Simulated assay, not measured.
Amino acid sequence: MSSDVIDGLQLALRVILAVVFIGAGIIHFLPSVQRTMAAMIPPRLRTAGWTNPTNLVLFTGLCELAGGFGLLYPPTMLLAAGALVLFLAAVFPANAYAARHKKRFGRIAIPFVPRLIAQLVLMALIVVAVI
Rank of each mutant, 00 (worst) to 15 (best):
Q34K: 15
I16E: 01
C63R: 00
G68W: 08
V121Q: 00
L56Y: 05
D7S: 07
T76S: 09
C63P: 04
V5A: 08
T47V: 11
L62Q: 00
A48P: 09
A48N: 13
Q34V: 15
F92D: 05
H28S: 07
N52L: 01
R115H: 11
G82D: 04
L125D: 03
K103S: 09
I110L: 05
I16Y: 12
F21P: 12
R100W: 14
P75G: 10
I6L: 14
N52F: 10
R46Y: 00
T54S: 04
L78Y: 13
S32A: 06
R35H: 12
T51R: 03
R14D: 03
V15H: 13
L125T: 02
R35V: 15
L11H: 14
V85Q: 06
L88A: 06
V91C: 06
T60H: 11
A98D: 11
A18R: 10
L84S: 08
A12R: 03
L58V: 15
L65F: 12
L78R: 12
Y97T: 04
L58T: 13
L9I: 02
M123Q: 11
I16C: 08
Q10H: 14
F21S: 01
L71F: 10
R100G: 13
P43H: 03
I22R: 01
F87T: 01
F29Y: 14
V128R: 01
R115E: 06
A38L: 07
V113T: 08
E64W: 02
V15Y: 13
K103L: 08
A89Q: 04
L58Q: 14
H101F: 10
M123N: 04
I108W: 08
M77V: 07
I27V: 12
L125M: 09
M123Y: 07
V20M: 07
I26A: 06
A18L: 11
R104Y: 07
G106H: 12
V113K: 02
M37T: 06
T60A: 08
D4N: 13
R46M: 00
L62H: 03
T76R: 03
V91W: 09
